[in-house]
Design a protein around this nucleic acid. Structure first.
Length: 356
DNA sequence: TCTGGGGTCCTAGGACCC
DNA sequence: TCTGGGGTCCTAGGACCC
């Protein structure tokens, strides 16, 4: 679609959690710093650039990170602090740009369409973020969210890269398909099995062939990703559709009597949040991950949305009892979905019946 | 060295209705 | 006796993202 009509920027705070921690502990600057939980199954949430040189990245098991770099400083995550700092950053962005799409705590897209000098505007935003929050960031600019995102990734940290779609195609023609967001490890592997190992190769594969391999929707979409074609707009308002709580046990748990109290506590947490925020959902679900990492989910939908502990717990417990996990369990979780959607047709009919 | 927590979207099959 | 097709809702699993 009409390329050249839009200008987007993608902004990404550099090593966000670590950067927040370093502001509280400036003495740790220039040292390898890792934010990670301390349980036996914890993983790294963020590693400083010094720690990344040791091969420590997000999702590296914390145990392994300790072995890779015994001298690294390990800090437990403080999500309340990160959420607070994130709000500050997003407030700065909104002060400079009308249309901002927040993506997680440390990322946002900015709509720079229509500005006289979008590049200069992005420069001002970058300077303001550092000035007002002390946090460094990387910015990418492009004709689509896809190009902007890849551009912001291209020169981290402290990056500032502007690319046209054509420039992106040329610059990343030899890069693996997994470079673009949307192509994960599974799809990359399937592409590789078809002999597609680069974005250039993907871009020059016909939609017919991609459709044959990946189906009528995924196939052509992968082709568009390979050619850096993307016409998604900015969504300035996002309403959550589900909320969940889950926990991985330090060691596997077996049997309903041991599992039920754990699920109950998670349900209490979830419901107290939903009640406080006056949000309700129609679909109650549980999630169980077994010791072999296989994962099952079970869910039931109600006619009307709920958030009270007794109703949610009764359903969650019923789903768990009926599943009666036959293997040791490493993770359990509870979820409420269909948050604040319109009341279902069935519920509306019940209401009607009652009122007649 | 086994792999967190919180989300979103897509697909596929079955139920059910017209 | 055999034979429809479309639309929507629901559940379960999978892939992906930060």
């Amino acid at each position: 679609m009409s390329s050249g009509r839009h200008v987007y920027a993608h902004l990404d705070i550099d090593a966000f959690y670590v950067s927040v921690e370093l502001q509280r502990r400036p003495d740790l600057r220039s040292r390898p710093v890792v934010v990670a939980g301390d349980g036996p199954r914890a993983v790294v949430t963020t590693a400083s650039y010094e720690a990344r040189r040791f091969g420590i990245f997000s999702a590296t098991p914390a145990e392994r990170a300790r072995r890779l770099c015994p001298d690294a400083v390990f800090i437990p995550p403080d999500f309340d602090a990160y959420r607070e700092r994130s709000r500050e950053v997003m407030a700065v962005l909104r002060r400079h740009v009308d249309r901002v799409e927040v993506v997680g705590l440390d990322e946002a897209y900015l709509d720079l369409t229509g500005l006289d000098r979008p590049r200069a505007a992005a420069r001002r935003v970058k300077a303001a973020v550092i000035e007002e929050t002390g946090l460094g960031c990387s910015i990418g600019i492009g004709p689509s969210k896809l190009v902007a995102k890849v551009a912001s990734d291209a020169d981290k940290p402290d990056g500032f890269v502007e690319l046209t779609a054509e420039a992106a195609r040329e610059r990343f023609a030899g890069s693996p398909p997994g470079l673009v967001p949307g192509i994960g490890p599974k799809t990359a592997e399937r592409l590789e099995r078809q002999g597609i190992a680069t974005l250039g190769a993907l871009a020059s594969t016909s939609d017919e062939l991609l459709t044959e391999w990946f189906g009528p929707r995924l196939g052509p979409w992968l082709g568009r990703l390979g050619r850096f074609e993307d016409d998604r707009g900015i969504e300035t308002v996002r309403v959550a559709k589900s909320e969940s709580r889950e926990t991985t046990f330090d060691s596997d748990v077996r049997g309903l009597p041991a599992l039920e109290p754990r699920l109950r506590r998670l349900t209490e947490e979830l419901c107290s949040t939903l009640v406080r925020q006056e949000r309700r959902g129609r679909t109650i679900g549980i999630k169980v991950r077994y010791d072999d990492f296989s994962t099952v989910t079970r869910a039931r939908s109600l006619a009307a949305p709920v958030n009270d502990l007794e109703t949610v717990w009764q359903l969650a417990a019923e789903l768990l009892r009926r599943l009666d996990p036959p293997r040791p369990v490493r993770l359990i979780g509870v979820r409420v979905a269909g948050l604040d959607e319109a009341v279902s047709a069935a519920a509306a009919e019940d209401q009607l019946t009652l009122s007649l």
